Simulated assay, not measured.
Amino acid sequence: MADTAALLKLAETEVAQEIPKEQYVPVLTSPPFVFVDGTFNTRDLGLVPGSPLRAGFAFRSGALFRLTDNGRAVLEGKLGIKRVFDLRSPEERGVAPDPELEGVENTWIESSRPDSTPDLDRFIPSEGAEGYREMYLEVIDVYRESWKAILEHVRDRPNDPFLVHCTAGRDRTGVLAGMLLALAGASREAITLDYLLSRIGTEPVRLMLLQFAVAGTKATSQEQPGFYNLVSLRTSSWNAFVDGVQEEYGGFEQFVAGKLGFSKEDMAKIKTNLTKP
């Protein structure tokens, strides 16, 4: 496993700047990352430095539609994934459906409403922190039914490793990962590190994701004000979101109990299953 300080430094590389292959390949082939051929940004949340989650249970990644036979074998065999949760929109799934994997249950729950198109003007001030706060607060609300299903899996199926993904495996998936880590009692530093690691994890597809972001935001170009703040991952952006969750709901645990309807007994079991074999 790479040194935490070195990981953080590399993860803070601006998205406009390329990370040399000789720097990112050793990271992406070492814990907490897992090399799964045909996808990217795959890691074990239990192996993130400082994570209280148990290893080999909760995984996150980018889209799976380009999985190779070797990638399938890793998910089905080495990692023993039993369930995949897809957080993408109907349009994303229509263009690139998840593959059928042997012995793996695919779960997709349509969100309560479509995601809003990000307003780049909201990402101009404070390096995009306020824009991220609004965007992620929408995500945590819109995908409630998915969060509920994932937490029910943690509660009821502690022996079935699972993987959660969206398209890039960084924003929607990052919100879920932050929630799981928070419920398990992770420090803010450990949660933020996992969030920032997506900067390294998406480097192999950085140019593709930049083009995807231009199309998704209807930006005139990558140079439009606010664009690079939107596509960058920064500690300040994550902190603005966490502060928003605290102000809106009282924190992640209160969101799960109050908005998703989990009881104290449920919460205790979820925490135990996240952290203990």
Rank of each mutant, 00 (worst) to 15 (best):
residue 165 H to K: 11
residue 150 I to Q: 15
residue 81 I to N: 13
residue 86 D to R: 00
residue 112 S to D: 12
residue 201 G to T: 05
residue 209 L to D: 09
residue 156 D to I: 05
residue 126 S to E: 13
residue 246 Q to R: 14
residue 193 L to E: 02
residue 247 E to L: 06
residue 81 I to V: 15
residue 51 S to P: 02
residue 130 E to V: 03
residue 254 Q to E: 09
residue 168 A to E: 14
residue 1 M to D: 15
residue 196 L to G: 07
residue 177 A to Y: 10
residue 62 G to N: 09
residue 34 V to C: 11
residue 255 F to S: 13
residue 166 C to P: 09
residue 153 H to D: 12
residue 117 T to V: 09
residue 212 F to L: 09
residue 126 S to W: 07
residue 77 G to S: 03
residue 48 V to R: 11
residue 54 R to D: 10
residue 66 R to D: 13
residue 94 G to C: 06
residue 24 Y to M: 02
residue 206 R to G: 08
residue 184 A to F: 01
residue 203 E to W: 01
residue 216 G to K: 12
residue 238 W to D: 14
residue 196 L to I: 02
residue 275 T to A: 06
residue 129 A to W: 02
residue 104 V to F: 01
residue 227 F to K: 06
residue 22 E to P: 03
residue 93 R to Y: 01
residue 129 A to K: 00
residue 87 L to V: 03
residue 173 T to K: 15
residue 191 I to Q: 13
residue 87 L to W: 02
residue 125 P to Y: 07
residue 46 G to E: 04
residue 225 P to N: 00
residue 149 A to F: 02
residue 109 I to A: 11
residue 161 P to D: 05
residue 127 E to N: 15
residue 245 V to Y: 08
residue 59 F to K: 09
residue 254 Q to G: 04
residue 156 D to L: 05
residue 200 I to T: 07
residue 195 Y to Q: 12
residue 47 L to V: 14
residue 73 A to R: 14
residue 179 M to S: 11
residue 103 G to K: 03
residue 214 V to G: 10
residue 273 N to F: 00
residue 47 L to G: 14
residue 92 E to R: 07
residue 220 T to M: 06
residue 166 C to H: 13
residue 46 G to W: 00
residue 243 D to A: 06
residue 234 R to S: 04
residue 10 L to P: 04
residue 276 K to W: 09
residue 186 A to P: 02
residue 173 T to D: 15
residue 150 I to H: 08
residue 121 D to I: 07
residue 168 A to W: 07
residue 99 P to H: 02
residue 28 L to A: 05
residue 47 L to E: 15
residue 167 T to D: 10
residue 79 L to S: 04
residue 10 L to K: 05
residue 68 T to H: 06
residue 161 P to T: 02
residue 176 L to M: 12
residue 104 V to A: 00
residue 67 L to N: 11
residue 86 D to G: 00
residue 165 H to M: 08
residue 148 K to I: 04
residue 1 M to L: 13
residue 270 I to P: 09
residue 37 D to A: 14
residue 216 G to E: 09
residue 107 T to A: 13
residue 193 L to K: 02
residue 6 A to V: 08
residue 269 K to G: 04
residue 174 G to D: 12
residue 112 S to L: 06
residue 259 K to N: 08
residue 88 R to T: 03
residue 16 A to L: 08
residue 182 A to E: 15
residue 44 D to Y: 15
residue 257 A to F: 03
residue 109 I to Y: 05
residue 11 A to Q: 03
residue 133 R to Q: 11
residue 49 P to N: 15
residue 110 E to T: 04
residue 200 I to S: 10
residue 17 Q to H: 13
residue 244 G to A: 01
residue 253 E to F: 01
residue 200 I to F: 07
residue 58 A to E: 13
residue 173 T to P: 12
residue 1 M to R: 15
residue 12 E to Y: 00
residue 113 R to C: 11
residue 152 E to Y: 08
residue 233 L to G: 10
residue 161 P to V: 03
residue 249 Y to G: 13
residue 41 N to C: 12
residue 31 P to N: 12
residue 215 A to Y: 09
residue 13 T to L: 02
residue 4 T to C: 04
residue 251 G to F: 00
residue 18 E to S: 13
residue 123 F to I: 10
residue 141 D to I: 01
residue 145 E to K: 15
residue 243 D to K: 10
residue 198 S to L: 07
residue 101 L to C: 01
residue 18 E to M: 08
residue 83 R to Y: 05
